[in-house]
C-alpha cells in the first residue's frame, strides 16, 4: 500500500450514471490488474474503494457508477482537482493461471477491472475473449476499448436492445482455458455453477479501511475467514462457499 496525492486530468461520461476518471501521479506505485484504490472524498469520513480500470505509467484510470453520496461527489471532480488515494490495495488477479485462452466476464461496473487484466494478458500474447453484460443498450460501455486491445468481445443485454440478448451465462464459449469474473452477485453465482474450468471472482464489500486493519469486509471461505480488502478482492472459484 502506498499513499499518493493524484491529480484529476480528465472526466468522461460513459453512460447516464457511469463515469471514467483519469488521474496522474501514481509515480513508482506498482498497481496490478484486479487491485483497487481507496479514495478520500472531501467531507466524507470513510474512503471509497474503487477498482482499477487501468494503470499505465504515471496514469490511473477509474470507471465507476454513481450509486450514492460518495460516487456522486466523485462525479463532480474536475480536471486539476487533487485526490488523496491509497493505492496497491488487494491481491489482484493471478495471471499465472490464465492458460492460452482466458475468458473475462464482466457485468455492469464489474467490467472496468477486467480492462487492465485484458490489456496485460494481451501483452503476454494470450487469446483473450471478454463477455460484457449489461441490462440494456444505454448502459453499455467499453466494448470498443476491449476490441481495440485485440480482445474478442461479446456484449450481452438482458432486454436484447444491444448485442446478444440474455445474460453473460448465455454467451459462454465452448472452449476457454480459465476465467476471470467481476459483476453483481447473482451473475457471479450463476457463473460459479455454469463455468467448466477453474477461475477467479472479484468480490465487492462495504469496507472500513480497505487495507486489512478493521475486519469490516470479511467473508467465510473454504480456507477460513478472509478479508475482501486484503486476501481478496479476487478469490479462486475453489475457495468460495457458493455451493448452496
Amino acid at each position: 500500500m502506498k499513499q499518493r496525492i493524484l491529480t484529476v486530468t480528465e472526466m468522461r461520461q460513459l453512460t447516464p450514471d457511469v463515469f471514467e476518471m483519469k488521474l496522474t501521479g501514481i509515480e513508482d506505485a506498482s498497481i496490478l490488474p484486479g487491485q483497487f484504490v481507496n479514495l478520500s472524498i472531501s467531507n466524507l469520513f470513510l474512503r471509497r474503494p474503487i477498482s482499477v480500470c487501468d494503470a499505465n505509467g504515471n496514469e490511473l484510470k477509474l470507471v465507476y457508477r454513481v450509486v450514492g453520496e460518495g460516487t456522486e461527489r466523485l462525479r463532480q471532480y474536475k480536471a486539476q482537482d487533487t485526490v488523496d488515494v491509497l493505492v496497491e490495495l488487494g491481491n489482484g488477479y493471478d495471471l499465472t493461471r490464465s492458460g492460452e485462452q482466458p475468458l473475462l466476464i464482466g457485468g455492469g461496473v464489474g467490467v472496468p477491472p477486467l480492462y487492465y487484466l485484458a490489456r496485460t494478458l494481451i501483452g503476454q500474447g494470450k487469446q483473450v475473449t471478454a463477455i460484457l453484460g449489461f441490462n440494456k443498450a444505454e448502459e453499455c460501455f467499453y466494448e470498443e476499448e476491449f476490441q481495440k486491445l485485440g480482445v474478442k468481445t461479446i456484449v450481452t443485454t438482458v432486454d436484447g436492445s444491444y448485442g446478444q440478448k440474455g445474460f453473460v451465462t448465455d454467451a459462454l464459449p465452448e472452449v476457454y482455458s480459465y476465467f476471470y469474473a467481476c459483476g453483481p452477485m447473482p451473475m457471479m453465482k450463476a457463473l460459479y455453477q455454469k463455468t467448466t474450468t477453474s477461475g477467479e471472482f472479484s468480490l465487492e464489500e462495504r469496507m472500513g479501511c480497505g487495507f486489512g486493519a478493521c475486519m469490516g469486509c470479511s467473508i467465510q471461505t473454504k480456507n477460513g475467514p478472509k478479508r475482501v480488502c486484503k486476501e481478496g478482492p479476487v478469490f479462486r472459484k475453489e475457495d468460495l462457499l457458493w455451493d448452496d
Binding site: 466524507l44 470513510l46 464489500e205 462495504r206 469496507m207 472500513g208 478493521c214 469490516g216 469486509c217 470479511s218
Partner: peptide, 10 residues
C-alpha cells in the same frame, strides 16, 4: 468469525 456483512456504515 463475527457478524455477517455489511459490517460497516458511515
Amino acid at each position: 468469525f463475527g457478524n455477517p456483512t455489511p459490517r460497516i456504515a458511515e
